[in-house]
Amino acid sequence: VGVSRDPVARQAEFSRRHGFDFPLLSDVDGRVAEAFGVRRRLPLGPLSTRRMTFVIGSDRRVLAVVHSELDMNGHADEALRVLGG
């Protein structure tokens, strides 16, 4: 699952354009960002949240947290590594 502050229509277009086979959720009000601690103290417009990936196991435990503002592929690579793939 991917989550961002973008509205639903923008998420749908982004997903379609990139051929994602997983859901993208819209967190326009920032409640999910706040709950996961990724909201910036000083909002920077579209950069109001930090780019982070949480790898969550089937038992609902967080297995890893990937931090990188610039390396999106690194997020996927690390998540797959943690999951053994």
Rank of each mutant, 00 (worst) to 15 (best):
V1P: 12
V3C: 10
V3S: 03
R5M: 11
R5D: 04
D6H: 14
V8N: 09
V8S: 08
A9Q: 07
A9W: 01
A9E: 13
A9D: 12
R10Y: 00
Q11W: 04
Q11Y: 03
Q11T: 03
A12Q: 14
S15F: 03
R16I: 00
R16E: 13
R17E: 15
H18V: 04
H18G: 00
H18S: 06
H18I: 02
H18A: 06
G19F: 01
G19Q: 04
G19W: 03
F20H: 13
F20N: 09
F20C: 09
D21P: 00
F22S: 05
P23D: 09
L24M: 14
L25V: 14
L25N: 13
D27C: 12
D27M: 13
D27Q: 07
V28A: 13
D29G: 10
D29L: 07
G30W: 02
G30C: 04
R31W: 08
R31N: 14
R31C: 05
V32Q: 04
V32M: 02
V32R: 07
A33S: 15
A33I: 11
E34N: 09
E34D: 14
A35R: 14
A35Y: 06
F36Y: 15
G37E: 12
V38M: 10
V38L: 05
V38G: 02
V38Y: 01
R39W: 12
R39N: 10
R39F: 09
R39G: 08
R40G: 01
R40D: 06
R41G: 11
R41K: 15
L42T: 07
L42P: 00
L42V: 06
P43H: 04
L44P: 00
L44E: 13
G45N: 08
G45Q: 01
P46F: 06
P46I: 12
P46E: 07
P46G: 04
P46N: 09
R50L: 05
R50N: 02
R50S: 01
R50G: 01
R51S: 03
F54W: 03
V55P: 08
V55W: 09
I56T: 11
G57K: 10
G57P: 11
G57S: 08
R60T: 04
R61D: 12
V62I: 15
V62H: 03
L63P: 02
A64P: 01
V65A: 00
V66E: 06
H67N: 08
H67Y: 15
H67K: 09
S68L: 03
S68F: 00
S68T: 07
L70R: 10
L70S: 04
N73L: 09
N73D: 12
N73W: 01
G74Y: 14
G74D: 06
G74S: 14
H75Q: 00
H75N: 02
A76Q: 09
A76E: 10
A76P: 00
D77A: 14
D77S: 08
D77K: 14
E78R: 13
L80Y: 00
R81Y: 02
V82Y: 04
L83T: 05
G84L: 10
G84T: 07
